[in-house]
Amino acid sequence: MTATVGVVVFPGTNCEFDSADAARLLGAEPRMLWHQNPSVADVDAVIVPGGFAHGDYLRPGAIARFSPVMDAVAEFARSGGPVVGICNGFQVLTEAGLLPGALQKNAGLKFVCAPAAVRVETTTTVLTREAAVGDVLHIPVNHFEGNYTCSPETLAELRDEDRVVLRYVENPNGSVDDIAGICSAGRNVVGLMPHPERATSALLGSTDGLVLLGSLLAAAAV
């Protein structure tokens, strides 16, 4: 059976088609979920893609969390459904309280747009189950506010519970503990700044995103 991947679209989202194409490439059926839709219907996984939801007004993700679809995404996550937030989607998930911490402006006010090497730190998450610990993936980053931060208590919790999913090999943005991606306590909600949907073809320079999105689809099929 073909897995259905819901792709959340806010006004200002701009990575929904890349995410949908990547899902299609992996044999899934993408379905756009407009932000005013109060339901995610019967999707098997949810991607909150990158962009500038609601113009990033106030703070990235601050307004998006009030969109009706986010209540449905939260409910889907609570019931164990796989959810991944990419870039702005990661910011939305932190603002919505589905992931801890916050993403602040990059160190040195530096906008980064470059391939980044990230190391897989755990494989017991919906985004990394088909990867191996220690794998180094080359995936583009493209952000101004990707500098992950959290309280020392939260950081200790993330480490103790093996919830740092990806770390940068070379930190591009000042992120605490080189964190590029984290997961929820239930390990079914993952947020990351790199864009795996942009690393799905040799023509794009890397296919390393496939193992991550393939993991998501494998998790969706369970």
Binding site: L58, T94, A102, Q104
Partner: peptide, 8 residues
């Protein structure tokens, strides 16, 4: 609840 992000 909204105007600030208490984390930062």
């Amino acid at each position: 609840r909204f105007l600030t992000n208490p984390v930062i």
